[in-house]
Design a protein around this nucleic acid. Structure first.
Lengths: 327, 327
DNA sequence: AAACATGACGAAAACGTTTACATCTTTTTG
DNA sequence: CAAAAAGATGTAAACGTTTTCGTCATGTTT
């Protein structure tokens, strides 16, 4: 049915070995024969069977990515970058959604392991020991999470938070409140770290609340607590929570940014579209995904044991939810 | 390195053939030996090499899905369903993002073809001839698009639009305006079809504008044109456009739903979160994805040539952007 | 009890590649 | 110009499975 290397060999009047060589290491055959093979292959529409190749080379030409939730734009942003870069490198991408469940997460990596050369893991939740175990089965690259001995593409949340604080302090705010996301999340820890450092250096007061679920409802819930602190600016763990905060403030008739300033984190699509448009921190999602692929491929090709981490800058996006505090 | 079927065979003191049988067609071996093999496999952590299996069976155990844009929540909703159902069936999912480009689209299918048993195509844009060509290479299932001879999972947009019109007419609206999405999109054609039928039956006036780009900016642009028609209700092609309409209305100081009603389509996350919350039509995205997988698998297993289509109901979600027209 | 069907299992071929090795041809070297 | 080196190509083994076929033991029918 499908056209195999044998058909090409027959057509080009050479052995299968020569065909294989002409295609994968062209400098091993005479230009004339290479030409002959290439035209034969093109004419027959030959596409090498990757499974067969993988069987002998040990390389599959596939990679996997596991994310907690495909409905979360954060992860799909990353996925988009991964997918694009992988295609450039002639790799195909398996995707798996763990539904935020840690148990399935490791199981997914394990299931993929046989079919991929490596897996990119975007899981804030899953714990270290499980990850190390997974790392034993196949090569891993972490996304937005630091793990000793495993390469990672990181987005500098701490720096983003510093930019937020700089911005708010410059506007004249002196008392800030932060709404924590999940305790176990690496991102939340990083954001907090940047926050503490920055507020300390500026000598302004920081109040922390939470943790809250990193969702719209979490924002609704947190909002009233935040207002009770008499802070002039509310910094949410992420955009979705910020959206909840904005909704609750509107319901209570509190003006944004007139009465209180609000910031998010992630710069998801709707941050620009909501009203008022949200001041937030843009994450280089696609870039991170793309770089994660590079890290994976580097790790496969160079057998040096060095573990690389790349650190990407985040960028404060000032929109309309921040202004000087009320006089 | 990896544990192979041979290792299991040695451990269980049987031949490789028996191991294979014990695992894939258990009724061909004696219960006692099966037991022995199974424990050996479990003990060694054996996972069959799917590439090797695929080489001989012709089945890869993989499927692909190609979408125009992974950042569009519509497609990720589908993807989530696909992914979940595929996993249940012990299939892995390749994902490819065509970046809305028709040329790459067919190329992607072609590249996947060798590695998958079938591909799910969610492409409103790509033209029929390309699809038929692709269908020649591997089995296809269409998502939310009808194509002769190819199975499809469809969401009944027309019925959704009928529900919208019923709702608006019941509220007392007599002059409606529809903002078209892309002309070539199957979804838009379906929505229009439902719309025309419903308005005709109710004997109310329908004005159509556009096509507009199905984005936020498209909504901004369309809004002023829509207002100029003096209609009392604006129906957007999708939620994102509706969001643009809402923003523009707010800018112009026009009250929603007091002065004019607005509806979207798709029920994306932010339809619930925007303000006022958007009346829209919910699409069973995940269900459609899940069913698309079923169709694909059915087509592979039964060799009957019947081409199945499944048609899913959509559901009007009434929120706060619709009310009786101003007196 | 002989003939036969049945069931359980092993040996080996096959799937489509890549690659180590062997063979043959060409070029370089002394 | 002979010998050696280098270059081009073919042969065959290997990768990890599934599956056909054959063998052998077991149970069933006459």
């Amino acid at each position: 049915m499908a056209v195999t290397i044998r058909d090409v060999a027959r057509e080009a009047q050479v052995s299968v070995a020569t065909v294989s060589r002409a295609l994968s290491s062209p400098d091993l055959v005479r230009p004339a024969t290479r030409e002959r093979v290439l035209t034969a292959a093109a004419q027959l529409g030959y596409q090498p069977n990757r499974a067969a190749r993988g069987l002998i080379t040990g390389r599959t030409g596939n990679m996997g990515i596991v994310v907690p939730d495909l409905n979360n734009p954060f992860f799909t942003g990353v996925l988009k970058g991964v997918q694009a870069r992988a295609r450039q490198a002639d790799y195909a991408v398996f995707v798996a959604d763990s539904d935020e469940d840690r148990a399935t997460e490791e199981q997914l990596v394990r299931a993929m392991a046989k079919q991929v050369d490596g897996v990119i893991v975007c899981s804030p939740g899953i714990d270290d020991t499980q990850l190390y175990e997974a790392a034993g089965i196949t090569s891993l690259v972490m996304l937005n999470r630091r793990l000793r001995g495993v390469p990672a593409a990181l987005m500098n949340s701490a720096s983003g938070m510093r930019q937020v604080v700089d911005h708010l302090v410059a506007l004249g705010h002196r008392k800030l409140v932060y709404l924590n996301g999940p305790r176990t999340s690496w991102s939340n820890r990083e954001r907090r770290r940047g926050l503490r450092l920055a507020t300390q250096q500026h000598g302004v007061e920081l109040i922390e609340l939470g943790p809250f679920p990193p969702r719209y409802e979490g924002g609704l819930q947190a909002c009233d607590l935040a207002l009770a602190t008499k802070s002039t600016a509310i910094m949410a763990y992420n955009d979705i929570m910020a959206l909840g905060v904005l909704a609750r403030l509107r319901d209570r008739g509190i003006g944004v940014p007139g009465d209180v300033s609000v910031t998010g984190f992630d710069d998801l699509m709707f941050a620009e579209l909501c009203s008022p448009p949200l001041t937030t921190v843009a994450m280089p999602l696609a870039t991170a995904g793309s770089l994660a692929v590079d890290l994976l491929l580097d790790g496969l090709n160079s057998d040096s044991a060095e573990v690389r981490h790349v650190d990407l800058d985040t960028q404060l996006i000032v929109r309309a939810t921040t202004s000087p505090p009320p006089a």
